[in-house]
Nucleic acid binder design. Structure first.
Lengths: 219, 219
DNA sequence: GTATTATTAGAGTATATACTCTAGGGAGTC
DNA sequence: GACTCCCTAGAGTATATACTCTAATAATAC
């Protein structure tokens, strides 16, 4: 593998593990057993590394959230979208942790991320529309659908932060992908009241699969 | 005012304005035109300052979210809770921005914040119960109410991050309390499908008051 | 083979950051 | 006046961080 790619991979790994704030360019170089000079030969600065990692993340999510216009949406599609989005969040989980700082330090990233958010919101809206067309949920006024899409986005992007801050994982940072995917339960909760009688049971069963085993230890 | 209190006040102000990560103890001292030695006479380290600020924040929210058990809940009560919570978020807005890092660097804070979250979730659950008792929303199974409370919490605590990252405020950090309170619109959106016929119109009118004027500039 | 280009090592640097240490001032008390 | 206690100044320091610079080595082109 090319050094450049190794740097990106190691950075992502370290960022995810320890948080971007706790990982310096020297750490990354040391982790790869290369010199700082080598790292700076491939990237102008830390921001550039982060930006490239974001581009990968963006590409991944854009790929998953490419909603086909031609055919009707099934429950399997819905499951796939949800699973994929949470997989993406997991693989690039450092990103949302320090998002505000990252956007403040890199105007390109700020601009791109804003557009990325808008595309995601658009995809969520589309999914809602196709769910309504497929008779999974009831039709809703545009205004309500818009606000609901935004709430879905808020729940999706911040479920992990909730787990990491409110959960009882003091010891090691033992967050797992399985726990993260319990966010799907929360997302589907938003749709519960809108389910059609025809689909209610099936969606509720799907939701049940992601139900947290035990929410949290008592204080 | 005592120097100690001045330090807390200036720290909060600078943290809110520039983000905790961008504010050093030297900055705080310089801002107050006192010496670093003086600052460290009053606080052992930066973490201690942050912890004390958190205690203030905690006290404020606990005070607002003290749900009286004796009388029925009114729409005015609900408005008060929502307004108060968003006021609190605004006054201590630096806190959620770097939350994960802060909790990682201070075990006291981690423990206290977790309990704080649980208390807030409890208060939200209570409010839902009292809204059901008052006939504002329909009764719901415990399991659904629990998941809904959590979603309310997610929307409340992350609405600001959404505004700061997705909104088109590149130039100056021109986020206003008014914009922040549009989060109330999002929270009430969660309750829309559960409103009783008796209250539906009134709650929808309340929600409309917080409606964003124009959501976001097109890309 | 030689010239050129791409890659790498590794020492080094300017700046920042959190924090320490010593000396002393001011106010009250005896 | 001397003693004490609280508070403050300000120089100073150890460490970290992002990044640079030079020289050398490997790869490729001709």
């Amino acid at each position: 593998m090319k050094t450049r790619d190794k740097i990106l991979l190691a950075s992502l790994e370290l960022f995810n593990e320890r948080g971007e704030r706790n990982v310096t360019t020297n750490h990354i170089a040391a982790h790869l057993a290369i010199s700082p000079g080598n790292l700076y030969y491939h990237f102008r600065n830390k921001s550039d590394i982060i930006y490239e990692i974001f581009l990968e993340y963006e590409k991944l999510v854009d790929f998953y959230l490419d909603i086909p216009g031609s055919r009707a949406l099934t429950l399997e599609d819905l499951t796939f979208y949800l699973e994929s989005v949470f997989d993406g969040l997991w693989s690039y989980r450092f990103f949302h942790r320090d998002l505000e700082y990252l956007l403040d330090s890199d105007p390109r990233l700020r601009r791109d991320y804003r557009e990325f958010t808008n595309r995601c919101l658009g995809a969520i809206r589309q999914i809602f529309e196709k769910m309504a067309e497929a008779g999974i949920i009831e039709h809703q006024p545009v205004e309500l659908r818009e606000a609901m899409s935004l709430n879905v986005w808020l729940v999706i992007t911040n479920w992990m932060a909730f787990l990491k801050t409110a959960h009882a994982l003091d010891d090691d940072n033992s967050l797992t992908l399985t726990e993260l995917k319990q966010g799907i339960y929360q997302v589907l909760t938003l749709e519960v009241p809108y389910l059609t009688p025809a689909y209610r049971e099936r969606v509720m069963a799907l939701r049940e699969k992601y139900r947290p085993v035990m929410m949290q230890a008592e204080a």
